[in-house]
Simulated assay, not measured.
Amino acid sequence: MSEPDISAQDAISIGSRLAGARVAAAQPARSGGNNRVFRLEMAQGPPLALKHYPSDGRDRLGQEYDALSFLAHHGITSTPRPIAKDTDASCALYQWFDGDAAVLHPQDDDADQMADFLIALQELRNADGARILRNASASIFSPEAAIAQYEQRLDGLRHVSQDQPELRAFVEGSLVPSTAISIRQLRRRYAELGRNPAVDLAPTHRALSPSDFGLHNALRANDRRLRFIDFEYFGWDDPVKLVSDTAIHPGSDLSEADANRLIERLSRAFEAGDDTFAIRLDVLYPVFGAIWCLIVLNAYLPESRSRRALAAQGGDLTVRLAGQLDKARRLHQTICQRDPDLTPR
């Protein structure tokens, strides 16, 4: 099924077949740029979730279903249990989680709950089935690969910024100069240590990562505990990228104190088995921050998913793009505040 959406009647039919039981009704629930989720009211038993994955050339269904199957097999209960899938229909059936979007009402212990989950994930790195899991989407295993991803994203944005004076001023006047400093610092530090920044991280030091992880992909249940959803990008990645992405992700909008607490807890966990982790975090954090600034600015790219999502929300697209630019400015400022050397002189 390659169409971008399915109807409630389709969801009832597919859900009944996958569940082996009658679905009484289907209600659209959480929607995203890549998928649509239906809450299936079963004729008997608790509700289930049917997720449809419109085709975009990547096996998001397989990646998520395999990830959640692995987690369920090893006793993780804060992620949905997979039930059945139909690759031809691009649909999968999962346990349904009741709860409100966690990002709407942040709590004081959210950063700790997120850290607890990510630390628990790492305890499964040597578990049965872990080594056959795929790499995370947009995984990065060397500093030079991180720099290459930054430069690739920058090239695309530079092309459209020619007609966007404010965007161009931010990119060329702030983002590019500060990131150039961080890249020079990274390469100098590696040279001083006698290390090659193009060499991939050893598999034994890689992390299991949800990749797109934060409060934007979490529900808060009645017990105030977080339940984590959307594992389409799950897989192996550099733990430095996992820590940086989780702390920086605009979808969580963590306070500085919460972000620092999360970084501290995760760093302790990874440093115990990797004596280079602290160095890599120090030099790579601003590079991953720059990548996130560019991701926020993807909405300026005419064919981007984020631009389509903004347009679908209605209103003046120009105003919405200005909002994304302001978000990128604030994110960039936060990154630079961690290292005063990144402010061009």
Rank of each mutant, 00 (worst) to 15 (best):
S7G: 05
Y285T: 03
G45L: 00
P250V: 00
R60H: 08
R220P: 07
I14Q: 06
P210I: 05
A24C: 06
L186V: 00
A19D: 11
S90V: 07
A67V: 02
D326N: 12
R338D: 00
F228Y: 10
A8H: 08
L71E: 00
G323I: 05
A257S: 11
L294F: 01
I132D: 14
R134H: 13
L68R: 04
A202G: 05
I181N: 01
S2P: 10
Y65I: 07
K241W: 09
Y190V: 03
A115T: 02
R30Q: 11
I291D: 01
S209I: 09
G75C: 08
D316L: 12
S13D: 14
P197M: 03
A269N: 12
S2N: 15
A84Y: 06
E123V: 10
S209Q: 05
V243N: 03
G129Y: 13
D59N: 05
D212Q: 07
D341V: 02
D316T: 08
S255T: 08
Q162G: 15
L219M: 03
A247W: 07
L281K: 11
H332F: 09
R131L: 11
A272N: 11
L124Q: 07
D155F: 11
T77S: 13
D10L: 06
R39Y: 07
A72V: 00
L93S: 04
K327H: 15
L193M: 13
V240G: 03
A299D: 01
T276H: 12
G273A: 04
G315W: 11
T318L: 12
S2A: 14
A115G: 01
K51M: 06
L121G: 04
L219G: 00
D326E: 10
A115H: 04
M1I: 11
D86Q: 05
C336P: 09
H74F: 02
Q9V: 14
Y150E: 00
L331D: 03
D116W: 06
P239S: 01
G214P: 08
H205R: 15
A312R: 14
A169Y: 09
S211D: 11
A130M: 13
E232L: 07
A138L: 14
Y300Q: 02
Y94R: 05
Q149D: 14
A11E: 06
R184F: 02
L254F: 13
G57Y: 02
R268M: 12
Q113Y: 04
R224L: 12
S255L: 04
L121R: 02
D5R: 13
L71C: 02
D237K: 09
D86P: 05
D275E: 15
E41G: 13
D56C: 08
E172V: 01
L93H: 04
S31V: 12
V176M: 05
A148Q: 10
D316R: 09
G314Y: 09
S209G: 04
A49Y: 02
Q152M: 12
L310R: 01
S137E: 13
S2L: 13
D56R: 13
E232A: 09
L310M: 04
G214A: 07
R225A: 13
A328P: 05
A130W: 11
